[in-house]
């Protein structure tokens, strides 16, 4: 009960890491894709706001909230990519380092584009690149992948390990 109560104040509580930044060997690109899809969803919501008949104040509030969330999701996508790229992807773990660098850099640029403006194609590109990143990651571990459609909006295809 107390745990549930405290969780209501999450946004004001600092977080201490007990995870793989100090390598514990747990890397999973699904979190990268998750944030990319979330950013795309925020773009869709923002693009649909003008048709919702909101008051001027209500519109401004929604734009502010969803824009902040869009930028947060895109930044988290970049952050989680950097962890996998920087901590896991290295010779020995990853055969094609040139491709790893290219994809990770592409996600950095696409993530920034999502933050800077409001074009759905930027969000789609971010999802596409994170899917490629996930495919490359799982291939390096010899794990087959499959594409599944998210059972929630925006209903895009994402790469999952076929475990």
């Amino acid at each position: 009960m107390l745990h549930s109560f405290i969780s209501k104040f999450d946004s004001n509580i600092d977080t201490a890491d007990a995870h793989c930044d100090i390598p514990c060997g747990i890397y999973d690109p699904r979190i990268v894709t998750y944030y990319a899809v979330s950013a795309l969803r925020q773009i869709d919501i923002l693009l649909s706001l003008k048709d919702k008949g909101l008051s001027e104040t209500g519109f401004a509030m929604q734009v502010a909230r969803n824009t902040a969330k869009k930028e947060e999701m895109a930044e988290k996508c970049k952050h989680e990519t950097r962890i996998i790229w920087g901590d896991f992807m290295k010779p020995g773990n990853q055969d094609d380092m040139a491709k790893a660098h290219e994809l990770a850099h592409g996600i950095m640029l696409a993530g920034s584009a999502v933050r800077q403006d409001l074009h759905r194609e930027d969000g789609e590109k971010l999802v596409d690149l994170t899917n490629q990143f996930a495919e490359m990651f799982w291939a390096s571990k010899g794990v087959k992948t499959k594409k599944v459609k998210t059972p929630y909006a925006p209903g895009v295809e994402v790469v999952e390990p076929d475990l």
Binding site: I6, A16, A18, H19, C24, I26
Partner: peptide
Amino acid sequence: KIIKVRGASMAPTLAS
């Protein structure tokens, strides 16, 4: 101060 744990390196004492 209240601080939230993220990650599993303190398992089984602490969970994410």
